[in-house]
Amino acid sequence: MTRSRSDFLAVRSIRAGGVRALLLTFVGLAAILGLSLVASGHQALADDPTIKIANFTFDPPTLTVKAGTTVTWVNADDIPHVVSEKDGKFRSSALDTDDKFSQTFSTAGTVEYFCAIHPHMTGKIVVTP
């Protein structure tokens, strides 16, 4: 996805000419080569883990990450879901189809979460130091 979009931008920009085109070409090439782009600030890194919500389950149900990792949930169901820590320490808004929610885990430990409107859906994030 990212690759084809970057390619497209690069081609368009070359036609437009200028320095910006070169930069975008580089970005496009980097994507083609599979290099991960360095995101700035709060943006999730390309290799940060994703949890897919599909068929009313979290996939994977247990995810182990290093402290400081940002985890992103993506809803692939036709029905909205709400990602919530067990006691409500974090809670997403209603995620409709293809909506995403990200949360950074900075402290080691196990975080249990569930879908606040389909509470039989549960998952765990194991955060290692």
Binding site: E112, Y113, A116, P119, H120
Partner: peptide, 10 residues
Amino acid sequence: NVVDLKAGGL
């Protein structure tokens, strides 16, 4: 019966 639902519950 749809409010303040608990993890793992109904």
